[in-house]
Write a protein that binds this DNA or RNA. Structure first.
Lengths: 122, 122
DNA sequence: CAAATGTATGAGCATGTGTTCATATATTTG
DNA sequence: CAAATATATGAACACATGCTCATACATTTG
């Protein structure tokens, strides 16, 4: 396996970047705020389950409602928040609204979070 | 550079894991809840700045107070939450309490979050 | 031990959040 | 167009959250 192939397989290489690359963001208040907004979107049980369900496949509101076991209204409200924050996108398909993860970034954050929580000290 | 050296350098390889590895966590409610608790800890402006300051070096409460520009009480309350969630550890050093990131996991989450927010679509 | 410094904590308050309930807005079908 | 289905939205409410203020606790120093 050559270097290029390996870099492609280990795709988080370009996701994290070096400390030099992101450390400067710690002085940019706008980036900090934006980051907390993303984490906040991931910090609710219902929203996280919605996003988790969307890592497998795009889904309609009704599907998400069944998968997450909360009311249609609650799902819809949370989807609006996720859409406003740019974590999901929506398209109409007949009567249904189909939601999709907006970005591989979202799946990466979910993966890293789960992975770390799975190994969490306590 | 050999395989072992490369694997060590690209340390996120073992951080994210494959989809097969973390996808099962999406069916474990306890892991999901634990994950949201971690994201929640990172989802507040003050707390995120505290953690960001700790990526550089361990710091006393007073230092954090100056760096984050909020009251001593506010810092202390937030540090307690971060300690309760296992994101930071504390040790006494004379009159001072010195706080440290509990884990490389925390630095990784900060890095990934910042990186992604820095590139966020909108 | 008293004073000074550094940190922690509880109460209280203003604000934010996630849900439900009722209702409005699509979209398809008869 | 009327009825049925799917989704969105606003109001209201219970609860959580982050701060301040006052005060307690801890540690060093005179």
């Amino acid at each position: 396996m050559g270097d290029a192939a390996r870099e492609k397989e280990l795709h988080l290489v370009e996701e994290e970047g070096s400390p030099e690359e992101w450390a400067s963001y710690l002085e940019d208040d706008d980036v900090i705020y934006a980051t907390t907004q993303i984490f906040d979107a991931l910090a609710d049980y219902t929203r996280f389950r919605i996003l988790g369900a969307l890592t497998t496949s795009e889904r309609s509101v009704g599907e998400l409602q069944r998968l997450c076991g909360v009311s249609q209204s609650a799902i819809s409200h949370q989807l609006r928040l996720l859409r406003d924050r740019g974590l999901v996108t929506m398209r109409r398909e007949g009567q249904r609204s189909i939601y999709t993860l907006a970005d591989e970034h979202v799946a990466t954050l979910i993966a890293v979070g789960l992975e770390h929580a799975g190994h969490w000290p306590e």
